[in-house]
Design a protein around this nucleic acid. Structure first.
Lengths: 221, 221
DNA sequence: TTTCTGCTGACAAACCGCTGACAGCGGCCA
DNA sequence: TGGCCGCTGTCAGCGGTTTGTCAGCAGAAA
């Protein structure tokens, strides 16, 4: 199992690297964005641990370039604490998980194991429910197999509901995940997005559970 | 579902509280150890979220006093990151789970749900009694396997009775759990809800124990 | 019987979610 | 630079639903 550790702080990088090695993985360190991009594009890794604040090229940019180039290895993002916009962007850009700094090395290892296990299984980048499906890598939404133009905010909303399909998601939870908690939004904004989405996806994809929240049908992921 | 949030940092406390409320729980905040101890000892909570570093009385001391007094509600401890010894002590003192700060609110909610389910003795999100069953993920109620339209308040009522099936629940307890203690409601409001529920679920699901309260049959688990 | 407790149907107010319109904002292109 | 266009939050109004209240009733308890 080869793991690429992208981290410019040498101490942290070697700490992570040592822990990975101790668990039997083969870690490889990249200290800046360009090196990371080059390694990730030319070599084969089972997982990438990616810090966002990097010299030469930002972590998110690296990730996006990998994804547009078709690289599909799971990516675990390290973010500064409270940097919500970064996280949301990271997920949009195709990250599979994120972890806030500072973190326990044990926790990092647990997530690494989880991601690798998931990737080994059938972690498809496509999630479906009834007539609609989303491709989380390409950030596309298909209705009955045909592509539908969708805005970023709308995409995040469907994606979140699909990731949690079969469960009622409260408006508060949705707002927090769409915007981050720093910015207080009217619940009506959410309703407006839902209305617009329903016009594009069909009226019955997103169900309303009055008094509880929204739900997309399907067996939980 | 009433949840006691013990946290002296007002921002964090209100953040947790808001998230809990958004998920349909009734949170109550205690800002120091003494208040926490008093509330936990005199009132009935389904769960306690307990920060350890508190003014006036330490969180662990509070927990120990509750346990020696025979209080058995599940307790989720919040610890500073890296404070491993505290965690171990917490578990020895009778905590059911712990979460390291800083944490994702989403992760806290997941653990809260898990603890409440576990406390009620259900591994699965479905609770049954006779012909009826509820799906706590979808907020649905089935009678003989077919879905029945149900209002939020009605759902909360059945859910509570089912979580405590086999036990007589007093009107006072029910009102407290449905509305929270800030808002005083007529007992008749409760009876009205029960009437409406019986029409939907069948007359004999919710039994009346005259002078004591209501009950749903079933093994207490 | 009398009294008390709980049940029930009717009703109106409050609430909740939906939607169309509009405006501000930012990106893009000529 | 100026204008156009798409995205998104806000607003106001609309239904339908939910729910507390009330008044009367039924059955159990005493």
């Amino acid at each position: 199992m080869r793991i690429l550790v992208v981290e410019d702080e040498p101490q942290i990088a070697s700490g992570i690297s040592a822990a990975l090695a101790a668990s039997g993985y083969q870690p490889r360190i990249a200290a800046d964005g360009e090196e990371a991009w080059f390694l990730g594009d030319t070599e084969d890794f089972d997982l990438v641990v990616l810090d966002l604040g990097l010299p030469k090229m930002d972590g998110l940019a690296v990730l996006k370039r990998w994804r547009t180039a078709g690289r599909q290895m799971p990516v675990l993002i390290l973010t500064a604490r409270g940097a919500w916009p970064e996280r949301v962007e990271g997920i949009d850009a195709g990250a599979d998980d994120y972890l806030a700094k500072p973190f326990q090395i044990e926790e990092l290892m647990a997530r690494v194991r989880a991601l690798i296990r998931r990737a080994a299984g059938h972690a498809s980048p496509v999630i479906e429910s009834g007539p609609i499906s989303i491709d989380t890598r390409q950030m596309r939404v298909l209705v009955n197999g045909t592509n539908v133009a969708i805005s970023p905010l709308e995409y995040r909303l469907v994606a979140y509901l699909l990731h949690h399909k079969g469960r009622v998601v409260s408006p508060g939870e949705l707002i927090e995940h769409l915007y981050g908690d720093d910015d207080a939004r009217d619940a009506n904004a959410l309703e407006a997005v839902v209305t617009r989405l329903r016009k594009k996806l069909g009226a019955d994809v997103i169900q309303t559970r009055r008094g509880f929240g929204y739900m997309v049908a399907g067996a939980p992921e």
